[in-house]
Amino acid sequence: MNFRQLHRGPQLLKIANVWDAGSAVLVQALGAPALATTSAGLAWALGYADGNHMPIEEHAAAVRRIARVARVPVSVDSEAGYSDDPATAAGHVMRLVEAGAAGINLEDGAGPAALLCRKVEAIKAAAARAGVDVFVNARCDVWLKRLAPGREVEETLARARDYAAAGADGLFAAGATVEADIAALVAGQPLPLNVMARPAMPGLEALQRLGVRRLSAGSAIAEAAWGRARRAAEGFLAEGACEALFEGAAPYPEINNALGAASQLAMGLHTTS
């Protein structure tokens, strides 16, 4: 099943966002039908802050490494396309597509909706010229950026309709958590709705009932990994605590074997392709 079809299936698509080839192998082994990157986790792994700071060359190289081990579709968070110029942003997104992305997230941030529309149009035109199908998930940051206090639903719906007219394939209402708001977003615009994990998010059964098509972990798994690694390192550096380092850890052979098998399979596919 391709990435677009996964948004039409009977089950809500759950995305446990990854940030490198190793995390991609781990999540894929758990049976995930698709992979998607977290821009934050990927930027942090490369030594950059999140927020459109990654050089496109490094981002594309990281996506290529993830795609090398992927056996399911990969969607890539392209942030805002790393440019305010639609043609340049489209060129950057196509670099990620060439590296192996089947879909992309593209955010409006605090910028005008019209700018994201022009970027979506430019990306769709570039994809058509290249003869590839790219699922464009338009991320609306009205909640995250607090752009319309008390009017979040109305503002997001207005933007969603514009994004759909520009050619977007999905709407990512990052930060929406209230059931009534989510129901209004599903009913009030034509795109499959993606929401992001938050402590206050309704449960999976409720989201399915409301008509949500995609639930993303966002940067939460990468944040959890950072927090646990920090606690382990703090204990070791402060007290030389060795036993605590191994609490909850995956055994070395398990990790190494999983990566070894993924590498061998990738090499075999490359040799026969």
Rank of each mutant, 00 (worst) to 15 (best):
N2A: 12
N2R: 14
N2T: 07
F3N: 05
Q5K: 13
L6T: 01
L6A: 06
P10W: 05
N17F: 02
V18Q: 09
V27R: 08
Q28N: 08
A29M: 00
G31F: 12
P33D: 02
A34D: 04
L35T: 00
A36N: 05
A40I: 06
A40P: 05
A43P: 10
A45I: 01
G47T: 00
Y48V: 03
G51Q: 09
N52F: 05
N52P: 09
N52S: 15
H53C: 02
P55H: 08
E58A: 12
R65M: 05
R65W: 01
R65K: 07
V72T: 04
P73H: 01
S75L: 12
S83P: 08
D84C: 10
P86Q: 03
A89N: 04
G91I: 02
R95I: 01
R95F: 06
R95G: 04
G100N: 08
G100L: 09
A102N: 15
I104T: 12
G109L: 05
L115V: 01
L116V: 07
K119R: 11
K124M: 09
A128K: 13
A130T: 02
G131M: 07
V132R: 15
D133H: 13
F135G: 03
N137Y: 12
N137Q: 13
A138T: 02
V142Q: 04
L144T: 07
R146S: 14
R151T: 00
E154G: 08
R159K: 14
A165L: 04
A166S: 02
A173Q: 10
T177A: 14
E179M: 10
E179V: 11
A180R: 14
A183G: 02
A187T: 05
G188E: 08
P190G: 11
R198G: 11
P199Y: 09
M201Y: 07
G203C: 07
Q208I: 06
V212R: 10
S216Y: 05
A217W: 03
A217C: 08
S219F: 01
A222R: 02
A225K: 04
A225M: 15
W226Y: 11
R228Q: 13
A229M: 11
R231S: 14
A232E: 04
E234G: 06
A238N: 06
G240P: 09
A241W: 02
E243M: 06
A244F: 02
L245D: 03
L245A: 14
F246L: 15
E247L: 13
G248R: 06
G248A: 11
I255W: 13
A262P: 05
S263P: 00
A266H: 05
G268H: 04
G268M: 10
T272H: 10
